[in-house]
C-alpha cells in the first residue's frame, strides 16, 4: 500500500518508532513496557472469584439445588456444571498469561501507546495534547497486590485508554506526569 506520509514524520523531524515488534526491551529502557508481573496474580485471583461464582450458578442450575433443574433431562446430573467449571477455570488460568504477554504500553514523545487484546488485538495511540483528565484506580483486590490502574480520558466518549497492573506508586507518578504534560492548559480561560 502506498502512503503519502510514511514512515511517520514527526514535527521535530525524528522518525516515529513503531513498537509492534517483539521482544520487549528490559524494564526501565525506553520503548514498550510490560505490565507489572504481579498483574497475573491479580487477574488469577479475579478469575478464581469468577470461577467460584459462575461455577456455583452452573452447578445450582445443573443439580437443581434451590432452583428447578434448568439443564435438559438428557444430560446426566453434574456434567453441565462440571463443563462450565472446567471452561471458566481454564480461561481464567490461561487468559492472564496471554493477556500479560500481549499487553505493552509506552510513553512516547507525543502520545501514550497501548497494545492489548487477546481475541481482538488493538493498538491505541492517545496524543498527550488530547488528554482531558487522568485517573488512577485501585480496587480492593488490586490493593492487596499493591497494584493500581491508570485511566486516561479524552473528549472522545468513554475511556480512551487504561493501563492496568502498574505498581501503585508508579501509577501515581505516571498520572502526575501525564497530568502535567497536558498542553491544553495554555488555553485561555
Amino acid at each position: 500500500m502506498d502512503f503519502s506520509k510514511t514512515p511517520a514524520e514527526r514535527p521535530d523531524g525524528t522518525e516515529a518508532e513503531v513498537f509492534e515488534a517483539e521482544p520487549a526491551p528490559p524494564p526501565g529502557a525506553a520503548g514498550p513496557r510490560r505490565l507489572d508481573p504481579r498483574v497475573r496474580s491479580y487477574w488469577w485471583v479475579r478469575g478464581a472469584i469468577y470461577t467460584v461464582v459462575l461455577g456455583a450458578a452452573a452447578l445450582m442450575a445443573d443439580m437443581g439445588w434451590f432452583v428447578p433443574r434448568l439443564v435438559p433431562g438428557g444430560w446426566p446430573e453434574g456434567v453441565f456444571g462440571a463443563v462450565v467449571v472446567v471452561v471458566v477455570l481454564t480461561l481464567s488460568v490461561v487468559g492472564p498469561l496471554i493477556a500479560y504477554e500481549r499487553w505493552r504500553f509506552a510513553l512516547r514523545e507525543e502520545d501514550l501507546w497501548i497494545r492489548r487484546g487477546i481475541l481482538i488485538r488493538s493498538v491505541s495511540v492517545i496524543p498527550y495534547r488530547r488528554l482531558q483528565f487522568v485517573d488512577t484506580e485501585q480496587g480492593p483486590i488490586a490493593r492487596i497486590f499493591g497494584l493500581a490502574e491508570l485511566v486516561v480520558h479524552t473528549a472522545a466518549p468513554g475511556t480512551s485508554g487504561r493501563v492496568p497492573g502498574l505498581d501503585a506508586d508508579e501509577a501515581e507518578a505516571l498520572r502526575e506526569r501525564l497530568a502535567h504534560l497536558e498542553p491544553s492548559l495554555d488555553e485561555p480561560t
Binding site: 500500500m1 511517520a8 514524520e9 509492534e20 502520545d111 495511540v125 495534547r129 488530547r130
Partner: peptide, 20 residues
C-alpha cells in the same frame, strides 16, 4: 480492512498530525 502494515503506518503518520 486496511492491510495490517498499512493500517499501522497510517496510524503513526496521522498521529504525528493530530495536534497540527
Amino acid at each position: 480492512d486496511l492491510g495490517a502494515d498499512g493500517a499501522q503506518r497510517w496510524r503513526e503518520a496521522v498521529a504525528g498530525r493530530v495536534g497540527r
